[in-house]
Nucleic acid binder design. Sequence first.
DNA 1: ATATATCTTTGTAATGATTATAACTTTGTA
DNA 2: TACAAAGTTATAATCATTACAAAGATATAT
Lengths: 135, 135
Amino acid sequence: MQIHHYLKQFDIKPSVQRTAVMDYLMSYKTHPTIDEIYSYLSPFMPTLSKTTIYNTLNLFVEKGAVLQLAIDEKNARYDADISNHAHFKCKNCGKVYDLFDLKQELFAKPMLEGFDIHTVELSYSGICGSCKGMN
Amino acid sequence: MQIHHYLKQFDIKPSVQRTAVMDYLMSYKTHPTIDEIYSYLSPFMPTLSKTTIYNTLNLFVEKGAVLQLAIDEKNARYDADISNHAHFKCKNCGKVYDLFDLKQELFAKPMLEGFDIHTVELSYSGICGSCKGMN
DNA sequence: ATATATCTTTGTAATGATTATAACTTTGTA
DNA sequence: TACAAAGTTATAATCATTACAAAGATATAT
Ligand SMILES: [Mn+2]
Ligand SMILES: [Mn+2]
Ligand SMILES: [Zn+2]
Ligand SMILES: [Zn+2]
């Protein structure tokens, strides 16, 4: 199964729960919160615990398989797409959108004396198209 | 007094507490948390309440006088420098550094169909110079 | 200057996200 | 099968933030 293989690439043992979480993240690219992941999976896996979702995502982030986004002040949000892209958070509806069509230069890690830069996070906020003109 | 005048520019009435918080933010550019601000000011203002620090900073952010940084997953951090600059958070010591010497293009708000972009936040993380070679 | 309304601050309680803990279950191996 | 290691679960604890209501300060009208 491809998700099993993908997890192994990051040195993650593919349990049923871990596979389900990664499958969800790869299928629904909505940058979900822990609660959203748990609420979706729980009906399919009645014994699933929210702690497992926390454990699983902490492991995924640690192993580099998933990004933890800081764009939402309230809850952590997770993204299985670890390629260079930015995010936009709507101040009105809270939805987090992907922004792929930006110059790659924006994601360059600057060479700065005294800083060993590992990660780059570029976030925008404002009002999204669906919310414009409403409210 | 200059801080009073500065606050008024943002339509903020300069109370004693608000002035003290803005003074602190402008003097110590360490991107402090609520707790750090409270711990510093409390000895000088014995009746000060932590709720006031929360109220004050929420007001400052709402009025655009201060930036709330999302770079730290645990606590909100605040910055009185609202000019274009990026931040670096050390994964080891947790300190948040300013990065001023970056191209202004990095802070441009891209023109994208369906997005009305108000703010840009550019954050890096990795290991800082003081932490390199230690641990 | 006094009364009244509005704004601000304060302390406490409530909420909500995340982590710690310990028991239980599953998996891998001898 | 037997044992050890890894993973999952439920519950309790922690910690940041917000809600609330009372008290205090400031502004406005008489
Ligand atoms: Mn994304
Ligand atoms: Mn700064
Ligand atoms: Zn929206
Ligand atoms: Zn450091």
